[in-house]
Write a protein that binds this DNA or RNA. Structure first.
Length: 296
DNA sequence: GTACATAATCGAGCAGGTTT
DNA sequence: AAACCTGCTCGATTATGTAC
């Protein structure tokens, strides 16, 4: 069984992508006339013994759809690999991190990189509910993700730990709560104080809930927010006790007080990457490790 | 009118054989 | 070994036909 003609395959990719022979001819990156494409498509269909698309109106057949799904990642990534080979990509650093990291830590960190690399290009991806580091890495959309190290991931992804950040509760300064023990000594281990935290799939909550489980305690949040600064905001307004991070080098907003969670495991933050890092990314990784040591 | 198919024709590239 | 000739294939083009 012979593999199909690659030129036919490429033409089919454009026909499928642009929804027809004529649109493909108009938008393709090089000049070719409609009859040529038309002929090649018929040849490809003959070769494969299956119809790939209906002409008028245009619609991929199931077979055509299957072929297009197979081809699409390859052809869509060609420009990127070409750029990499040309070397332009060598100064392009693509990172992903959560909003707070992007906003508070990366700027100082990147200042150092920028000093040594004048033509640095940056792409920052915000990690959130809709984008997770594993797929970004798998699709080679990013070089490094900075994220918590608590969720499981494929073995092909390497990790480098940066920081351990203690979990901490925050209460209004005037609150009469002194320590965690005083709110966790409750009948059946069910803590009734209202809790404000990030959503349950967030690593902070996972780490926290795992430890509660271990201690046979139950405490579910009544307010879920999307960022840490919102937590202090709502604590300040008296909605409850906040679960947050004791980030080194930062101080609490006025009017709030920390309650240490002695014995709770810290949240581990680190870098995820795949394969061998390109020089610019390696430089960033080293700088990140040094930066993490400094703020510890 | 528009999108696609077909027909006729041309040129590039290759294999192979022969000549220099 | 390099240069040249020849015939073949493939895919391009333009012109034209056909279906929606």
């Amino acid at each position: 069984m012979q593999p199909p003609n690659l030129h036919h395959i490429e033409l089919f990719y454009y026909v499928a992508k642009y929804g027809g022979i004529t649109p493909a001819v108009r938008k393709m990156p090089y000049g070719i006339q409609q009859p040529a494409v038309s002929g090649q498509m018929l040849q490809l269909e003959r070769e494969l013994g299956v119809k790939l698309f209906n002409r008028r109106p245009f619609a991929l057949t199931p077979a055509g759809n299957e072929l297009y799904t197979f081809l699409s990642p390859f052809f869509s990534k060609l420009p990127l690999i070409a750029e990499q080979l040309r070397g332009e990509e060598s100064t392009h650093l693509r990172l992903a991190a959560e909003r707070t990291v992007l906003a508070n830590h990366l700027p100082t960190l990147l200042d150092q990189i920028k000093k040594d690399c004048t033509n640095l290009r940056l792409t920052m991806n915000e990690l959130g509910a809709s984008s997770n580091p594993e797929t970004l890495l798998a699709n080679q959309d990013i070089d490094i993700a900075i994220t918590s190290l608590h969720s499981s991931r494929p073995s092909s992804i390497k990790t480098l730990e940066l920081l351990s950040i203690p979990l901490v509760l925050i209460v209004p300064e005037k609150s009469n709560i002194k320590n965690f023990a005083s709110i966790s000594k409750v009948p059946e281990g069910k803590i009734m104080e209202p809790m404000i935290s990030l959503s349950s799939e967030h690593s902070i909550n996972k780490v926290f809930q795992r430890e509660l489980d271990k201690r046979d305690l139950v405490w579910t949040p009544i307010v879920e927010v999307t960022s840490l600064d919102l937590i202090s905001n709502y604590v300040d307004r008296g909605y409850g006790i906040g679960l947050t991070l004791d980030v080194p080098g930062t101080s609490l907003p006025k009017g709030l007080r920390k309650i240490n969670l002695r014995g709770f495991p810290p949240l581990k933050i680190g870098m995820l990457f795949q394969g061998k890092l390109k020089p610019i990314a390696e430089k960033f990784a080293l700088a990140a490790v040094a930066y993490a040591k400094k703020i510890k």
